[in-house]
Design a binder for these strands. Sequence first.
DNA 1: GCTAACTGCCTCATCAATGTAGCACTTGTA
DNA 2: TACAAGTGCTACATTGATGAGGCAGTTAGC
Lengths: 183, 183
Amino acid sequence: MRADATRNLERVLRTGARMLADDPSATIAAIAAEAGVDRRTVYRRFASREDLMAAVYGARYDAVEKAVEAARLREAPVAVALHRYVEGIIAVNRAWPVETSRMLREATIGERRRRLIDEVDAFVARATDEGLLRSDLPPGWVAAVLPSLMEHAAEHLSELSAAQAADVVVATLLRGVGTPQAR
Amino acid sequence: MRADATRNLERVLRTGARMLADDPSATIAAIAAEAGVDRRTVYRRFASREDLMAAVYGARYDAVEKAVEAARLREAPVAVALHRYVEGIIAVNRAWPVETSRMLREATIGERRRRLIDEVDAFVARATDEGLLRSDLPPGWVAAVLPSLMEHAAEHLSELSAAQAADVVVATLLRGVGTPQAR
DNA sequence: GCTAACTGCCTCATCAATGTAGCACTTGTA
DNA sequence: TACAAGTGCTACATTGATGAGGCAGTTAGC
């Protein structure tokens, strides 16, 4: 593939991720226009709308898997792993701001998805065993709440670096936002 | 208005809320079918798709305003007000499960929206002043995180009552999910 | 039971998005 | 520089959703 073609493909993917996150029914025409590319060019790379979305989701999953791997959720000390994981995912959320709720329904990525969920679930279990997380929580509560914390951090704390935003998220997750007296 | 007409209107609104929350681009035809009503009947009540969505959002806002009022965010002791507020909103989320992120962009409800935001912001400020919430948090962080906690509680903790789910949310918000040792 | 309100069904025009095609042109690369 | 890869533009068929009209039949409420 030629260099400019690669560049265009990249632009379409990035722009598509951003616009589809903002509005899942964004049209191909709008995405192409925003990416500074002809609509026809998009169709040359992606056979259909579905295809483009699958590619965007795939790109995000690549990044997420990388972040999870880097966090070493199985071996690293739980506190360290948690922080690295959160920081990594916040960075991914910024690079590939896909609207996760809609993505999860796509069957395209069922297998990869299950693997990641298992990975995180196992980590939560380990963190609970090792005394980092309370054990009296409703099952799945942490796994449900954490992603949306990271999503909010990614977009709401835009003036902070990923590491700083991760500090806020981890502190909020573990200690909450109440004062010591309020406990 | 005749009684059965009122009933149908109610069904359309409820069904519309549920389906649009699940997929904002749900068609009028699909909503009508799910509500057990002809597509034409929907159009008799609502001039357009926009109209229906505005009505759904309006219904949700009615409920939210009621909950906020009942929580007495200005006068009641902060801990009490917080709990009542959370419980009320969780109930609203279950009754009118609108996808908030998309709703907030609608200009239709700009004024009502601003009033509610101000109300909650003022409450957060008071809760901070009175020592319930930490004062070293990024501005707007609590106001950003709390709604999504309540949303998750509404749908994820479906086996709990609104009051029980509110316990979990408030505990998570104030004290986090970490063990005392992990702090 | 009668009337007016309300509904279901079929039909139609319109519009916007999808996906395809051919042609002239620019641009990377050897 | 020459060639091949890639793009922009214009046009077109298709599909699906929106919104409206008419009419026969049903149902609530007096």
